[in-house]
C-alpha cells in the first residue's frame, strides 16, 4: 500500500473505532504529508463515517457509537479546516445546515444528536450551540450559504423564539429552509409558524433530506 493509502486507511479506521485522538493524529499526519484536505476527508474520514452510518441504519450498532464516530470526525475536521480555507477548496456535501438551541434555552442533547446524525449522513453542520439569538442564526446562514436552518427548543416559553426566527428568516430574504424540533414543539406549532418539523433525531435527518430535494 502507498503511504497515501496507508494514511487514508488510518483515518478511516479511527472513525470506525470511534477514536477521536487517533483521528486528530492521523489528520495532522496527513497535513504534514501535504495531502489535499478534501481528499483526506473523502477518502478517509467520510468513508469511515459512511460505513458507521450504514451499520447504524442496519441496527448493528448503538446510537451513541454513531455519535462518537461523528464527534471523532468533527475533531479531525477542525484540524483540516484552516488548510481547506487556505486552499479555498470546497467539499461536496449533501447540504449545509445551521443548527442551534434558541435564545433562553440551554437544552442541547437532542440538537447534538441531530448534528451527529446529519454529519454521518453527509451534511456539513454548523452547530451554533445553545442560547443562540435570532440574529446569529441569520448571520451564520448568510455567511455559509446554508440550505437549512434548524432551531431546537425544549421549553414552552422558549419555543416562541422559533416563531421570531421564522419571521426573521422571511424578513432576511434568505433562500433557506427552516426546520424546528424539541420536546415542547408539536407539528401544529410548526405549521402555524411555517416551519418543517421532526419529532426525533432520525426523522430529522429524513425531513432535512427532503427539504434539500425541494430546493
Amino acid at each position: 500500500m502507498s503511504e497515501k493509502g496507508a494514511i487514508f486507511l488510518e483515518l478511516e479506521n479511527s472513525i470506525k473505532n470511534y477514536d477521536k485522538e487517533a483521528a486528530i493524529e492521523a489528520a495532522k499526519k496527513a497535513l504534514k504529508m501535504g495531502l489535499d484536505p478534501i481528499e483526506v476527508i473523502e477518502e478517509g474520514l467520510a468513508k469511515g463515517l459512511r460505513e458507521v452510518g450504514t451499520r447504524y441504519e442496519n441496527g448493528e450498532i448503538f446510537m451513541v457509537e454513531l455519535v462518537a464516530a461523528a464527534e471523532a470526525m468533527k475533531s479531525a475536521m477542525k484540524i483540516l479546516e484552516p488548510e481547506i480555507l487556505k486552499r479555498k477548496s470546497e467539499r461536496k456535501v449533501l447540504g449545509k445546515v445551521v443548527l442551534g438551541t434558541v435564545a433562553g434555552d440551554i437544552h442541547d442533547i437532542g440538537k447534538n444528536i441531530v448534528a451527529s446524525l446529519l454529519i454521518a449522513a453527509g451534511f456539513e453542520v454548523y452547530d451554533l450551540g445553545t442560547d443562540v439569538p435570532v440574529e446569529k442564526f441569520i448571520e451564520k446562514a448568510k455567511e455559509v450559504k446554508a440550505d437549512v436552518i434548524g432551531a431546537s427548543a425544549l421549553l414552552t416559553t422558549t419555543m416562541l423564539v422559533q416563531k421570531d426566527l421564522a419571521e426573521a428568516i422571511k424578513r432576511s430574504g434568505l433562500d433557506v429552509k427552516y426546520i424546528i424540533g424539541g420536546a415542547a414543539v408539536s407539528p401544529q406549532w410548526a405549521e402555524e409558524i411555517g416551519a418543517a418539523y421532526a419529532q426525533d433525531a432520525s426523522s430529522a435527518v429524513e425531513v432535512i433530506k427532503n427539504l434539500i430535494k425541494q430546493r
Binding site: F62, V64, E65, V67, A68, A72, N112, I113
Partner: peptide, 12 residues
Amino acid sequence: HFMAEKHTLKHA
C-alpha cells in the same frame, strides 16, 4: 455530553 465518551461506549 456523555454520548461519545469511551465509558459510554464501553457500557452501552
